[in-house]
Amino acid sequence: MTATVATRTEVAARAVDVWKVYGTGEAQVNALGGVSVELEKGRFTAIMGPSGSGKSTLMHCLAGLDAVSRGQVYIGDTQITGLSDRGLTNLRRSKVGFIFQQFNLLPTLTAEENILLPL
């Protein structure tokens, strides 16, 4: 008899029933409504959809740059929903890298100088 061992894929980040709501009353916008997703370590994942569908909001929530209104977000095995600002900062320093759409480089500096500026 041969035993089969199931291996669980490691998860880089995941969202569980995540909601992100902006505003209140008639001005309320549900940017995310009950989104659940797992992003596997070592895999490329494309998040696609029309403008205004919540792609950037989801990415900001998964990275801990924006707080969710409801649900849980994890980076690796660490639940980031409810972490303090200091806890989020420490986690992002050691576990997350960012490439922003609007990277706001200073045109008077070289690429290397722009990279070194935050140091």
Rank of each mutant, 00 (worst) to 15 (best):
T57F: 09
D77F: 05
I75L: 11
C61W: 03
G49P: 01
G54L: 00
L62D: 03
R43Y: 13
G49H: 09
S53E: 02
S51M: 04
G76A: 05
G52F: 01
R70K: 13
Q79P: 15
D66C: 04
G52V: 00
G64I: 07
S69I: 05
I80N: 09
L65M: 12
G49W: 06
C61E: 02
T78G: 09
T45D: 14
A67H: 12
Y74H: 08
H60E: 01
K55W: 10
S56I: 00
G54D: 01
I80K: 07
G52W: 01
Q72Y: 00
I75E: 07
A63D: 08
G64S: 11
T57M: 05
L58T: 10
Y74S: 05
V73L: 06
F44G: 14
G42P: 08
R43D: 13
T57V: 04
D77I: 04
A63Q: 09
S53D: 03
G54Y: 00
T78S: 10
I47Q: 09
A46I: 14
A46Y: 12
P50F: 08
G64L: 11
F44S: 15
S53V: 08
L62Y: 06
L62A: 06
G71H: 06
I47R: 13
G42M: 13
R43H: 15
A67M: 12
S51P: 10
L62M: 12
V68Q: 05
L58M: 14
G54C: 00
M48N: 10
V68Y: 06
I80F: 13
Y74P: 03
T45G: 14
G49E: 04
V68F: 05
C61V: 04
G49N: 05
M48R: 11
Q79V: 13
I47E: 08
L62K: 10
C61F: 04
M48F: 11
T45P: 14
T57I: 02
S69F: 03
M48G: 10
I75T: 06
G54V: 00
P50V: 13
K55Y: 10
G52L: 02
M48Q: 12
G71R: 04
D77N: 10
Q79W: 11
G49V: 01
Q72E: 10
L58N: 10
G76C: 01
T78L: 08
P50L: 12
I47A: 08
K55V: 07
T45E: 13
R43P: 12
S51F: 01
T45I: 14
Q79C: 15
D66Q: 09
M59L: 14
S56M: 03
T45A: 15
S69T: 11
D77L: 03
M59V: 12
Q72P: 01
M59I: 13
R43A: 14
T45H: 15
L62V: 01
G52N: 03
R70C: 05
K55I: 05
F44Y: 15
P50D: 03
T78H: 09
I47V: 15
G54M: 00
I75H: 10
L65D: 01
G42V: 11
K55F: 08
H60N: 03
Q79T: 13
M59F: 04
V73G: 02
L65V: 10
G54P: 09
M59E: 04
A46G: 15
Y74C: 03
R70Y: 05
